[in-house]
Design a protein around this nucleic acid. Sequence first.
DNA 1: GAGTGGTCTAGACCACCGG
DNA 2: CGGTGGTCTAGACCACTCA
Lengths: 249, 249
Amino acid sequence: MSARQGRRHEQIADELRRAIADGRYPIGATLPSEAELATAHDASRGTVRQAVSALLAEGLVGSRQGARRVVLSTTPSQSFTELRSFAQWARAGGRTAGGRVITANWDTARADEAGLLQVPHAAPVLRVLRLRTLDEDPVLLERTVYAEWIAPAVAALPHDSESVTQRLYDDTGLVFAHGEHHIDAVAAGTADAEHLRLRRGSPLLRVRRTTTTAEGRPVETSDDRYSPGSVVFTVRNSTQTNPLTRSRA
Amino acid sequence: MSARQGRRHEQIADELRRAIADGRYPIGATLPSEAELATAHDASRGTVRQAVSALLAEGLVGSRQGARRVVLSTTPSQSFTELRSFAQWARAGGRTAGGRVITANWDTARADEAGLLQVPHAAPVLRVLRLRTLDEDPVLLERTVYAEWIAPAVAALPHDSESVTQRLYDDTGLVFAHGEHHIDAVAAGTADAEHLRLRRGSPLLRVRRTTTTAEGRPVETSDDRYSPGSVVFTVRNSTQTNPLTRSRA
DNA sequence: GAGTGGTCTAGACCACCGG
DNA sequence: CGGTGGTCTAGACCACTCA
C-alpha cells in the first residue's frame, strides 16, 4: 500500500486519458457525465471536475455548459518535442544544430526563478549559458536555470552536446511534458551581441520558458534570445479547436 | 448592463490581475493567503482557489504547497489560447484600450497579401494604419489589410473605435474564428518610431497575422508591431497539445 | 422538463513550509 | 509549531442543452 496512492483526481484523469488514447472514446464521442464518473470512481463531483479540467487544459476534450463533454483529440502531438528541443527542431528541418556551453556554475535562485521552479527562496540552482548554432551560424543564446534535483545530470553532460533533451532522456529517463513560453522582443545586451555576433541594441526575439515533467514538476527555466531573422514562431488557433482555455469556457 | 455580474471567481481574478499590473504586488512579492482573500471578498475558499488558479495558468503567479503564492510576472500576458481582440484583452486585464486610425486608403493587393487573403492578384483592398493605446500609452502599431468584401464595414467605423472586432461583430455579425500568427522581432523603422514614440532601431515584437471566418474565409492580414515591454505573448503547450510551432524566417 | 456542466459554500484532513 | 496550499466531500442553485 505504500506506493503513492493518493491524488484521486490524477488517477481519474489518467484513466480517462488512457481510455481516450485506447479509442474507447473516439473523436466526437461524449464522456460520461460528472455524476456517472463520480459514482464509477467513488469520488465526489468536485474531484471528478478537477480530473476532467486537466483533460480540458490539455485539449483532449471540449466542454459546453449543459452538454456532455466531447472528445476533441486522441493523438498526442508529436511536435511538442520539436518545440522543446532545438536540436530536434533543426533536424526536422534538415539543418544541423550545434551547441556549446559557455559557462556553467552553481548559484542561488532569485525570487522569480524560485517561484518558476517552485523551489525555496535562494535554493541552489545550476546556471548554464549555452550558445546554439544552426548550420554553424550562432542563432540562439540560452540562459538556463536548472532545479537542483536535475542539475547533476545536466552538469555531467558533455559541453558540446547536440541535444540536451535527448541526452537527459537517455541518461535519466526524464521526459519534458509541459512547457510555457513567454515571447517578447528585447535589445541585445553586451553579452548577447558578442556571442551572437550582432551590434548592441539589435532586436532579439526573447522566449522565456519553463518546462515541467508530466506531474507538473518544474525542471528548468530559461531565457532564450534568438538572432533576428533566424527563427519565426507560428501559432494557429481557432475558436473551435482552442485546447488551452482554462476556466473561461 | 453587459457587465456580466455574478462570476465571483472572475471578479476576484480580475482584481488580482489589476493589483499585480499596478505594482501593488511586484515580482517576488507574495499574495495574501487564500483565507485572507476569501474573507476580503466574502467568498468561500473554493471560489478564491478558482480565481487564483487562473493566474497560475497565465503564469502570473507560482504556487508551492505550504508557501504563499509568489508573483512571477507583472507584464500583462496576451495568450493565444484566448482568441481575444486587443480591446477585449485589455479590458480583461482591467486596462483601457484606445485606438485611432492614422491613415486608411484603398489600394491593390501585393502578391503576398493576395495569397494570404485569397483574392486575385492586385485586387482592391483597404489598407489601414492604426495606433493602439493601453491606458493612453501607445503600444501597438497595426498595418492591416482588409479584403474587399469586409472593407466597407471597416471604412464606416469611427476612426477612434475602441474595439474593431466588437464593432464589426455588432454591425455585420462577423466572427473571427481562426487565426494564424507569425512572431519575430524587428527594429523600429522611422514610422514605427514616430508613432510609438521610440528611437529608431528599438526592438519591436512583430506579429504578422491572418484572420479568417469560421468558414475559413480570410478577413484581414496584418503586420502588428508592439512596443517593447508592453505585451508578452504566452503559449502553453504539452505533449498532448501544441498550438505553437517554430519555423524558418 | 430532465440532464448536465458552471459556480459556490462550508466544512475537513493532509503535506509541506517557515520561523 | 502555526500557517498555507493541495485535496476532497456533500451538499446547493443556476444556465444551458437536448429530446
